[in-house]
Simulated scan of single mutants.
Amino acid sequence: MSELIWSLQMPQPLVVAPSLSSLFVLPHLSMYPEKILAAIIISPIIPSSMKAEDYVKIKVPTLVISGDKDQKNNLKPAKALEKIPGSELRIFPHASSPAHQSQPKLFHKELYNFLKKFK
């Protein structure tokens, strides 16, 4: 991921990681927090290599979104990411995985509110 960011000459992009892509983004946030402006993690899947102490290394503003009807992941991964300092967790009602597809209007509202911080 670092090579991609470097090759695209992106100084601190905002990363959106739905579902499986969180397997790549979360370790990157832990190892290289200075390279990402912010992250939006949707219906996360947490890599088995990550431990609770890795979450506190993430110094990137992070919005975590999950659905309350997410049968595949349940809410454990999303709630675990609340350990990221300054993270925001949003549980969408009546939403399955991925939550942004189940509740697109609510997703866009939360996305807009989160992005307003990064003018």
Rank of each mutant, 00 (worst) to 15 (best):
1 M>Q: 09
1 M>F: 14
3 E>C: 06
3 E>I: 08
3 E>M: 09
5 I>N: 05
6 W>H: 14
6 W>I: 15
8 L>Q: 15
8 L>E: 14
8 L>G: 06
9 Q>M: 13
13 P>S: 03
13 P>T: 00
15 V>Q: 00
15 V>E: 00
16 V>F: 11
16 V>S: 00
17 A>T: 01
17 A>W: 01
18 P>H: 02
19 S>W: 07
19 S>A: 02
21 S>V: 00
21 S>D: 02
22 S>N: 08
22 S>F: 06
24 F>I: 10
24 F>H: 12
25 V>L: 13
26 L>W: 08
27 P>C: 09
28 H>L: 14
28 H>T: 06
29 L>A: 03
31 M>Y: 11
33 P>W: 04
33 P>D: 08
33 P>E: 07
35 K>T: 10
36 I>Q: 03
39 A>I: 09
39 A>T: 10
40 I>L: 14
40 I>G: 03
41 I>S: 07
42 I>M: 15
43 S>K: 06
44 P>K: 04
45 I>R: 13
46 I>M: 07
46 I>F: 05
47 P>I: 05
50 M>S: 01
52 A>I: 03
53 E>Q: 01
55 Y>G: 01
56 V>P: 00
56 V>N: 05
57 K>H: 11
57 K>Y: 04
57 K>C: 12
60 V>N: 07
61 P>C: 09
61 P>E: 09
62 T>G: 08
62 T>N: 10
62 T>R: 11
63 L>W: 15
64 V>L: 04
64 V>D: 02
65 I>P: 00
66 S>E: 11
66 S>Q: 11
66 S>C: 13
67 G>C: 03
67 G>Q: 01
69 K>T: 09
69 K>E: 14
70 D>I: 02
70 D>G: 02
70 D>K: 09
71 Q>S: 11
71 Q>L: 14
72 K>V: 13
72 K>S: 12
73 N>D: 02
73 N>A: 09
74 N>A: 09
74 N>H: 13
75 L>S: 03
75 L>N: 01
76 K>N: 09
78 A>S: 12
81 L>K: 07
81 L>E: 08
82 E>G: 12
82 E>N: 10
82 E>C: 13
84 I>T: 07
85 P>A: 05
86 G>K: 07
86 G>M: 04
86 G>A: 05
87 S>R: 04
88 E>Y: 03
88 E>D: 01
90 R>A: 11
90 R>N: 02
90 R>E: 10
92 F>T: 08
92 F>A: 14
93 P>M: 10
93 P>T: 13
94 H>G: 07
94 H>V: 06
95 A>K: 10
96 S>G: 14
96 S>Y: 11
96 S>N: 14
98 P>H: 05
98 P>N: 04
99 A>N: 01
100 H>P: 00
101 Q>C: 05
102 S>D: 03
103 Q>C: 01
105 K>A: 14
105 K>G: 04
105 K>N: 12
105 K>M: 08
107 F>M: 05
107 F>N: 04
108 H>D: 04
108 H>E: 10
109 K>I: 13
111 L>A: 06
111 L>W: 12
112 Y>F: 14
112 Y>C: 05
112 Y>D: 13
113 N>R: 15
114 F>N: 11
115 L>Y: 12
116 K>G: 05
116 K>H: 13
117 K>C: 06
118 F>A: 10
